[in-house]
Design a protein around this nucleic acid. Structure first.
Lengths: 135, 135
DNA sequence: AAAAAGTCCACCAAGTTGGTAGGGTGTTTG
DNA sequence: CAAACACCCTACCAACTTGGTGGACTTTTT
């Protein structure tokens, strides 16, 4: 399951997508409109900024804005950033791989199955972007 | 990600699948062969028994055994039992559904996307059984 | 009766999650 | 220059989950 943090991140990003290229948006505005605890949202946006997804501006007229074209930011990227691995097992993760002890990956039925699940999920998550969050 | 508990459960179940219809298997034997902490495994097997997946027998010659044909126990069932929801959002889960507050499911891009991911995953997990764990 | 083997209950350490508090830093405007 | 503005940063916290252990109890077999 996606953490609440991730869900907040997606809500905030969808709001920023709707206001793409309309200048910086206040954290407080996003928090209010999307009903996200303000201070918690601060942390999330800062993290997204450090990852290069968002940009920010201080002082009057400041706020956060999308650094990139929302049509080019994959949903999978955001999940990995805020939530962690997409795969169901470490030995199957592309970005968070960890060798499986006491289980030979070449002869593990669960491993093979989870590779399939991962690929099925990524087929969707890697092809959708922030633009797809807006209906 | 699947919890360690879930991974242990699958290892134990695969062992029991390999010994299907060969009489009860000792917890201690499974623990040793699959390198699972004994007391932890006890809890897991008991839970699987209470869910009707396993049966048990006490006293000499006792142990645990599969209650059903391994080819008829879906992997999805085990995951829901031991790990919880398969979906990435509560508002998208079939077995653990919870309404999404502050988000109209009819007009939420994330919701729609996660429905697709869920269905893609279930397409695999609902069609595979314990038998498929053995390679 | 003794041994075997599962059952049950209670507890624990460490980590994660979701959040709060409060001051610091850089920008703009008057 | 100073005040207002708005993000930046560090620290902290309660509650919950995860992964695991210890010990006593019951049931079954020999």
């Amino acid at each position: 399951m996606l953490s609440k943090k991730s869900q907040y991140a997606f809500k905030a990003l969808s709001y920023l997508t709707e206001h793409y290229k309309q200048g910086p948006v206040l954290i407080s505005e996003i928090a209010k409109k999307k009903k996200i605890p303000l201070k918690f949202l601060e942390n999330i946006l800062l993290e997204l900024k450090k990852a290069g997804i968002l940009g920010s501006k201080k002082g009057k007229g400041g706020g956060y804005y999308l650094q990139k074209d929302p049509a080019k930011v994959k949903v999978a990227t955001i999940i990995r950033l805020v939530n962690g691995p997409i795969a169901m097992l470490p030995c199957v993760s592309l970005y968070f791989y960890e060798r499986c002890k006491n289980c030979d990956e070449k002869h593990c039925g669960l491993h093979d199955m989870m590779v399939e699940v991962r690929d099925a999920s990524l087929g969707i998550l890697e092809s959708r972007t922030l633009s797809d969050l807006i209906v």
